[in-house]
Write a protein that binds this DNA or RNA. Structure first.
Lengths: 335, 335
DNA sequence: CCCCTTATCGAAATGGGTTTCGTTCGAGGA
DNA sequence: TCCTCGAACGAAACCCATTTCGATAAGGGG
C-alpha cells in the first residue's frame, strides 16, 4: 500500500507537505503541489480512510438501522426504495452506507455500541419500533439520527402525510357510495400504523359515518401480506362485513385481496380495497390496486440531505411531512 | 472516548497488557485479566475499529457491489432477498456490510479504489454486468470477491441451476400439451439471462420442438416489468403467437401477463405464462404465477460463508450451483 | 542596508490500538 | 545454594494520516 511517506520519499518533500496537498492547504507552492500530485497518481496513491478517521474523528459513513426483530428489513419494497434513493444522495455528498446491526463481531451489542465502534457520523433509522429500548438509547446518545415514519424531539424525522392519506382514501370510498368502510391497521406499535389509523378514524367521524370497533383490525407482522390476509378474514367473518376496506399498507391490501378471493368473492365487484404506499406490485396485480402513493424517492433524498445537514452543522433537528397522492386503479368500485 | 490508555491508567497496568486481554493473549494472569475486564466494563470501553484496522489490515467489513448503471440495485425483490440472507450470515460471523459505489467522497472512482480506500476484506458482487470493465479490474485486483449469477475463474461464484430451471419449465409446458413455447429472455449481457435462454433452447431441441428465432425475444432493462411487457407485445404481434411463454424472470413474466391482459386475452385460458425466481409478488398476483423457485435464503447464506471462507483462508475460489424447483400455481393450463 | 512580512516547508505530537521482544521474578530441580 | 525455566508484564516500534507551530528564506518598504 502506497502511503504519503512513500510519496514524500519519492518527491523529496516531507509527509506533512504531501498531506497538505491532499487537504488543499494553501501554504504549498503550485510547483510542489504539481510534483506531489503527479507522483501520487503515478504511484497509485489512495488515502487510508481508517488512518484519516482516527485523526479527524470523521468516518464519512452513515449507518442504516433496520428494526431487526421485525425481520422484514431490506426486503420491504417501500423501505428499500427509500434506501435506494437515500444511498444515491448520500453517496453524492461523499458518505458511504453501512448496516448497523445489534452485534459486534458476532457478539450481541447495542446499536449505540455498534455505532461508536464503527464511528459512523450519523444514522438513518428505518422501520423504527417505538418500544425498542435500544432505539431510545441511540436517540439519547448524541449521535446524529434521522428517523423515517417516527416522531421525536431528539432527532430529525420525515414521514408522509399519513393522516391526510387515510383521509383521502376514506373520502374516495365515501364518494363511491361506500358507508361500511373498514380499516386493516398496521398496528399502533409503529408511527405510520398509528397515524393512518388516526386518519381513518378522523375521516369516519368527519363524514359522520358510524364508528365500529370491529371495523378496525390488524396488527402483528409489520405490514405483512399474511397479517392482511388474516385481518381480512376476520372482517369477512363479521355479521355485517364492510363493503370497502382501507389497508394501512399495500402488502396488507394484497393479503386482503387474496383473502377475499379465497372466499369466492371478487375485488372490486363485491368489496373495494384501497392500499397505502404504492409499491411496485400495486400496479402489477390484477385488479390494479388503488392506493395512496408515498413519494419514495423524495423521502430518501430529503432524509439524506437533512441527516447530512444535521451532521455537518449543529442545529436543532428538523422534521418534514411529505404530501401524498391518491392513485386510482381498479380495486375500488362505486356501490 | 475511553481508550486502552484510560484503562491502563485506572488499573495500573500498561496499555500493552490491556490490549492483550482483549485479544486473548495467554500471558496475562487470570487476576489481572479480571481486573482489566471489570474496569473496561465499568468505564464503558469500546475498541476503536479504525485504529484496529490500521494495525491489523483487517476491517471486518464486506463490500456490497451492485451494478450501478442498471439502476435497479437494492430494489429488485430477488436480489434484496439474497442480500438480506447474506447480511444475517455475515453479521453472525462478525462482518459488517458496506455499499461500494463508483465514487469516493463524491468524486468518481473505480470499484477497486473504493474498496482499497475503505479496506474492505472482501466484496460480494450482485447483478454483475460482464461488460463492466470496472468489474474486471476488481476481479483481478486480488481483493477476495464473490459473484452472484456469474462465471469466473478468478472468484468464487454461486448461481441457481438456471439451465435445468428453464428445462423444467419448458418440460412442464410440454407436458401440458404446449408446442408453441416462446422465451422472454433476460438478455445475454447477464449470466443468468444467457443460461436461462440456453436451457430453453436445449429443452426445445431435446423435446424435438421446432426452433423459431422469433420466439426468443426480450433483452434490455435488467429483467424489468417493462421489458417483459414490451417483449410480450412483440410475441403477440407474431403471425403465429405462442401458446405458452417462459419468462427469464418473474418481473418479466408479470409484465408479460399485463401485456396479454391488455389485449383482452386471459392467462392461463389463452396463454400460459411461467416465470423464474419466485419473488413474493408471484404468489400474490392473480392468477398466481407458476414459476421456477430459486433458493434465495440459501444463496445468500452460502455466498456469505464461501466469501468469508475465502477471506480467511487462502484457497482457490469455489463455485456452487443451487438446485431449483418448479412451483405450480395458476398461470399455466393444459392446452 | 536593515527590519518586517509573507510564502513555503517540515518536525513533532497526536489518534488508538497491536505485536515483537525484553525484562523481571518466583518456583522447582540438582 | 545456584541455576534454569516459565509466567507475567511492559517498552517501543508500528500502522497512516492530520495539524499545530516553528523555522527558513525571499521579497518589500523605509
Amino acid at each position: 500500500m502506497i502511503t504519503i511517506y512513500d510519496i514524500a520519499k519519492r518527491t523529496g518533500y516531507s509527509p506533512t507537505t504531501v498531506s497538505k496537498v491532499f487537504n488543499n492547504y494553501n501554504d504549498v507552492s503550485v510547483k510542489t503541489r504539481g510534483k506531489i500530485l503527479d507522483a501520487a497518481k503515478e504511484m497509485g496513491y489512495l488515502p487510508n480512510s481508517h488512518a484519516r478517521t482516527l485523526m479527524t474523528k470523521k468516518s464519512w459513513t452513515i449507518g442504516i438501522l433496520f428494526n431487526e426483530p421485525s425481520g422484514v428489513g431490506i426486503r420491504h419494497p417501500f423501505f428499500n426504495g427509500v434506501i435506494d434513493s437515500f444511498k444515491k444522495t448520500a453517496e453524492a455528498e461523499g458518505y458511504d452506507l453501512m448496516f448497523i446491526s445489534d452485534n459486534i463481531g458476532g457478539k450481541s451489542s447495542s446499536y449505540v455500541e455498534h455505532c461508536r465502534f464503527r464511528s459512523v457520523d450519523g444514522v438513518i433509522v428505518i422501520m423504527a419500533d417505538r418500544k425498542d429500548p435500544g432505539l431510545q438509547e441511540l436517540l439519547e446518545s448524541g449521535i446524529p439520527c434521522f428517523l423515517l415514519d417516527f416522531e421525536s424531539s431528539q432527532a430529525g424525522t420525515i414521514c408522509s402525510d399519513n393522516i391526510n392519506g387515510s383521509f383521502l382514501a376514506v373520502q374516495y370510498l365515501y364518494e363511491l357510495g361506500h358507508r361500511q368502510i373498514a380499516h386493516i391497521s398496521g398496528g399502533t406499535d409503529t408511527f405510520a400504523g398509528q397515524q393512518r389509523q388516526l386518519g381513518y378514524e378522523m375521516a369516519i367521524d368527519r363524514l359522520k359515518l358510524k364508528r365500529r370497533e370491529e371495523y378496525i383490525t390488524g396488527g402483528g407482522g409489520f405490514f405483512s401480506v399474511e397479517s392482511g390476509y388474516e385481518a381480512m378474514n376476520r372482517l369477512l367473518d363479521l355479521e355485517q362485513p364492510p363493503t370497502a376496506v382501507l389497508a394501512a399498507g399495500d402488502n396488507l391490501a394484497l393479503g386482503a385481496v387474496k383473502a377475499i378471493r379465497n372466499r369466492g368473492l371478487q375485488v372490486p365487484e363485491h368489496i373495494s380495497v384501497i392500499g397505502f404506499d404504492d409499491i411496485e406490485a400495486a400496479g402489477l396485480v390484477y385488479p390494479g390496486l388503488t392506493t395512496i402513493r408515498q413519494n419514495v424517492q423524495e423521502m430518501g433524498s430529503r432524509a439524506a440531505q437533512m441527516l447530512i445537514h444535521s451532521i455537518e452543522t449543529v442545529r436543532a433537528p428538523e422534521s418534514v411531512v411529505l404530501p401524498v397522492e391518491l392513485v386510482i386503479r381498479d380495486s375500488c368500485r362505486a356501490i
